[in-house]
Design a protein around this nucleic acid. Sequence first.
DNA 1: CACCATGTTCCTTG
DNA 2: CCAAGGAACATGGT
Length: 292
Amino acid sequence: MPELPEVEVLVRHLAPLLQGKTIRRVLVLRPRVLRPTSPRQLVRTLRGARFVRLSRRGKFLLFTMEPSRRTPAIILVGHLGMSGRMYLLPPTAPLPKHTVAVFDLGKQRFVFEDTRYFGRLTLDASQVQKLGPEPLSADFTAELFFRALKRSSQAIKVKLLDQSLVAGLGNIYASEALFRARISPKLPAQALGRKRVHRLWLAIREVLTAAIECGSTVPLNYAGRAKRDGFFYFGRRLETDSYEERLQVYGRSDEPCLVCGAKIQRCVQAARSTFYCPCCQRTKAGRLQRAC
DNA sequence: CACCATGTTCCTTG
DNA sequence: CCAAGGAACATGGT
């Protein structure tokens, strides 16, 4: 369940639950997911360590740990990949099929589960340091964004997935932000003028903020086995009432645009699906079109 | 069997 | 150096 808002909501959920807890035992079931850290290395470093702080950087979770021995401060880095989940379970509960690692905390167990094993749990922070600015921080300015885009001929949608440009956008919110900014995903990044870049900059921040707000409002079941769990990620506030769609274009090909009614299109860019309204998100600045 | 999937990295080709 | 395309990683759901 990745992308910045999901990670942010998870971090806020986990932080108070882990705060101050000591890891009594470390169990690693999928060593590959730790790379380049070895299971032995992880066990040795984390056994006896205490959770001090949990934060987020892009799509990464950063666990600041107080070491058990007189060693340098520890940062444990987590990434959920496509299907990663982290949650607490009672020690008696059976471990899920695709468990990567388990931390024994005494009365509870902290579980990292990841069906596809694309995630990461490691002591290597090198990937984190390559990240661009946090989109919701003051570091991410429209001017900086404009200058970075000006240097790239890549399609803007593809560029938005570049974590060194801005950290945390993924395939869903990239499409959503472009729709909100009424910019075609196929435009070369450098073709965007200041005005559009500013609109996109704002749209990115709005889309992410709204998603975090939505996820924070809804009771989420992190450990639940539910297939289509009530993750705000998938669009609806709750499966109960409220038709309020959070996602306006993603996954909606052939459905009507909520603004103009035109059919939402799907295309493939960099081997990933992009969703957009061909009418609201035109390639050229252009003027009104009948369908809109 | 086919196709799709929230992510990232690596490789080849031009 | 850049960009694009494909494959890889691995496991599911529809």
